[in-house]
């Protein structure tokens, strides 16, 4: 019976639309990745240049102002990425005529940003304790946890991005000398790959 089938499809679609934030654009993933790679390049030139982009505990070899410059670079990448994502999501939500400020988007943001903010504060604490070599690992892990948490409130594919970030974060915990490289892979390369896949799949 056609009508019953339509009705079930309709129910499923509206459940999905009401509970999931679907205005994320693949393009914002790509751009966030590009910002992260540029940021990593700046961090590399601040910390290691002209040596290779990995090596011993950064705090041993660098004066304090270098660390704070690296932190500022990281923070700029974060703010720029959030701003870009907000702009592109607003554009997409206007096109699909759904509200950007909906119960679903609020839940998505809460799920993502509570772990991310806690991770950020933890990084400040680590910095104050002279443990900045762990910052790359902590940012990757808390971002990964935030994504995992938020995957319930958006397209499910984001879960795979979260697993990859978590694995990289754990590797960075054991090999902090590769922190910058792993951070660039997680926030840069993975975002670009994920964003491109999502763009082709949903926005193209």
């Amino acid at each position: 019976m056609k009508k019953a089938q339509d009705e079930l499809a309709e129910i499923k679609s509206i459940m999905e639309r009401s509970s999931r934030f679907l205005s994320l654009s693949g393009l914002s993933g790509i751009l966030a990745g590009v910002y992260a790679l540029i940021g990593s390049g700046i961090a590399y030139s601040l910390i290691y240049y002209p040596n290779p982009p990995y090596g011993k505990d950064i705090s041993l070899t660098n004066p304090e102002y270098v660390i704070s410059n690296v932190m500022i670079t990281g923070l700029s990448v974060l703010l720029l990425s959030v701003f870009t994502t907000w702009l592109l999501s607003r554009k997409k939500s206007k096109k699909t005529k759904v509200s950007l400020w909906s119960p679903a988007s609020r839940r998505f943001m809460r799920a993502l940003f509570i772990p991310v903010i806690i991770g950020g504060l933890l990084c400040i604490g680590l910095y104050a304790q002279g443990q900045e070599h762990l910052v790359a690992a902590i940012t990757l892990i808390f971002y990964g946890l935030g994504l995992f948490n938020a995957s319930n409130f958006t397209l499910n594919e984001i879960k795979y991005l979260s697993y990859c970030q978590l694995v990289l974060g754990l590797i960075a915990t054991f090999f902090p000398e590769y922190g910058l490289v792993l951070w660039a892979m997680g926030f840069g390369v993975l975002h670009i790959i994920y964003g491109a896949i999502m763009y082709v799949k949903y926005d193209g």
């Binding site: 309709e10 129910i11 459940m15 999905e16 639309r17 009401s18 509970s19 509200s99 909906s102």
Partner: peptide, 22 residues
């Protein structure tokens, strides 16, 4: 009414304005 109920099955709670918009 079917849609309203579907939304309330997927969301613990939902407010009037969000219903209106969706």
């Amino acid at each position: 009414r079917l849609r309203i109920m579907s939304i309330l099955m997927a969301n613990e709670e939902f407010d009037f304005n969000s219903f209106k918009e969706l």
